[in-house]
């Protein structure tokens, strides 16, 4: 990717659900290879903004949008956007971890199967890399075939992370990734995030000001749908 371009450029973005204005006149530039934190009170629109960055809100009833969002210079709400490719490049991790009722390994390669169907021979290696990056490899390397739903909440969160990382996204959107983790696992993820800056642009939603201070190159405060 062209590193002189900002990873994401948001220009006077407004989002409404029906009559309800959820986001208003948002202007943001996320530099490539940076970590930006979003904070703000509950209901201020952090998740909505995150989802809008990878067009995950399109299907929501009453959703409408104004302004523009560019990912590496390309307007993602333009007509010629390939949604599948966009979502591979801009990965989103949900507030609540969701693993499929399959094995750990099957979960990690869940997206790979469809994005790189011809490279199946590489999957074991890619899966290991992704699990290593997510800090889960040591815990699961002996039981990759075990059901993923038996993992703890924190492990499931990191498995979901590995699943997204396996697709080698350019931008990673994390919605409170450590909210359900113990401090130690949270530390693992924080360190991982700092180490990843070279290849990935990160957005991290957090309620914890100290965490935002620790990891954020840029801190963005949202309140009632606007930048504060």
């Amino acid at each position: 990717m062209n590193s002189t371009l900002p990873a994401i450029e948001v220009v006077s973005l407004g989002v409404s659900y029906g009559e309800e204005r959820v986001l208003d006149s948002i202007n943001l530039t996320l530099a490539t290879g940076s970590i930006t934190t979003f904070s703000g009170p509950s209901g201020s629109g952090k998740s909505t903004l995150l989802r809008t960055l990878c067009r995950m809100n399109d299907r929501m009833p009453g959703f409408s949008l104004s302004g523009s969002i560019k990912v590496f210079g390309q307007d993602i709400y333009g007509d010629d956007t390939d949604l599948c490719d966009l979502r591979r490049r801009v990965g989103l991790l949900f507030q609540k971890p969701c693993v499929f009722p399959k094995s750990i390994y099957q979960n990690v390669i869940f997206g790979l199967i469809y994005h790189r169907p011809k490279e199946r021979a590489l999957f074991p290696e890619l899966a290991e890399q992704a699990l290593l990056q997510a800090g889960l490899w040591e815990e699961v390397k002996d039981r990759l075939d075990a059901p993923a739903v038996a993992l703890s909440q924190g492990q499931q969160q990191r498995l979901a992370l590995a699943r997204t990382l396996a697709l080698e996204p350019d931008v990673l959107l994390l919605d409170e990734p450590t909210a359900s983790l113990d401090p130690e696992s949270a530390n693992v993820i924080e360190e991982w995030a700092l180490s990843l800056k070279s290849c990935c642009t990160l957005v991290w939603v957090t309620h914890d000001p100290a965490q935002a201070e620790r990891i954020g190159d840029y801190q963005v405060m949202l309140s009632a749908g606007s930048l504060a």
Binding site: M56, D85, L86, R87, R88, G91, L92, F100, F110, Y114
Partner: peptide
């Protein structure tokens, strides 16, 4: 719904 959402977020058509 979150299975579908997750698959969608992973870029599946």
């Amino acid at each position: 719904e979150h299975y579908q959402e997750t698959a969608r977020a992973l870029g599946l058509s």
